[in-house]
Nucleic acid binder design. Structure first.
Lengths: 175, 175
DNA sequence: CCGGGATAGTTTAAGTTTAAAATAACGCTG
DNA sequence: CAGCGTTATTTTAAACTTAAACTATCCCGG
């Protein structure tokens, strides 16, 4: 590491690089997608830890609250972040301990809990979000506007395809 | 769930759908990428659990071994799967318990452990891989060849951009 | 108003994940 | 050949994650 990079050739072996050239089209596509996401995600994770001593799940939860500018229920958070409801319970608890969010019981429905950012939480999130956006901007800096637009479009098509052919197909199986 | 889907309109709120239209280009791109990956990954996770009573990390580890058709060290696996080395220890242990892989110490270097599929592991993996490929093919079924090719290309560019502008930039920071 | 199905959230058990510290073995240099 | 920096792996502690079971509450039909 300190020595000036003689072994660079081996450094970039990853899930995808390890794919053999005989793999099929969609499998290679999926591996590339997964590798890219994993790379970015782990950089962000590391950045949040080093720069703010926090974690990605906590950041994501705060981001959801910040975006809506209004309290969300535990169930709302679970659906938006696409994680289990039990998961939200734990992450929220830690954010409450840190004083970044508060939970309040609904008057109308005693089962429901509303979660919202505290003033400290909002300030802290905005600090983190600014840095987060810089990282993301750096990540995609080499893409032209046209390329980014095209990529957005193709990812959108892929997402629709997944919902139609994978998710809806499974859900409709034997019912 | 048993009742026939009256609340479908609310069902597809996700991390990305929740994004406001004023977000910046790269942030929206990143959210879409993340959402797509998460959707596919959680379908595969569920499929592996239901159909084969196994998990994605175990499948991935076996896939790495199957692809190389040769034993890999713990470190090789850690680098290829882009996870920490401690992680590989745990996943490998469970696969050994299940009789799907074996670990053997190297004669030349007593620190090194080689991991390889057992006959049972190879057979089981091939069963799972066939199904896995069907899921992936279904996921991207609505993309034409031209679209898939373009998407591959753009993801490749994005990956290069991430390595150059995010990862290498961080690594070179103050050294 | 009451019984029962649906909904909101928590708990539990098992597994995955990481970073950091610890262990063990290697291999070079003096 | 002794020590010492490096490398391969395991251990540890804390957090995240899920599915499934559970608790509490809601609300509808009779």
């Amino acid at each position: 590491m300190a020595a000036g990079g003689a072994e660079r050739a081996e450094q970039f072996i990853d899930h995808e690089t390890a794919a053999s050239p005989t793999d099929h089209r969609d499998l290679r596509l999926w591996l590339r997608l997964l590798t890219l996401t994993t790379l970015v995600e782990s950089e962000i994770r590391g950045g949040l830890r080093v720069a703010f001593d926090t974690t990605l799940p906590r950041f994501d939860l705060m981001a959801a609250l910040h975006k809506t500018k209004a309290p969300l229920t535990m169930g709302d958070l679970s659906r938006r972040l696409m994680v289990s409801n039990g998961n939200i319970t734990g992450v929220t608890e830690r954010l409450v301990e840190e004083g970044l969010v508060v939970r309040t019981r609904s008057k109308e429905d005693k089962r429901t809990q509303y979660v919202e950012l505290t003033a400290a939480g909002r300030t802290e999130f905005e600090r983190m979000a600014a840095r987060h956006e810089q990282w993301i901007a750096a990540a995609f800096a080499d893409l032209s506007d046209a390329e980014a637009t095209k990529l957005m479009e193709l990812l959108g098509k892929a997402k629709a395809s997944v919902r139609r052919n994978l998710i809806a197909a499974r859900e409709g199986q034997t019912q």
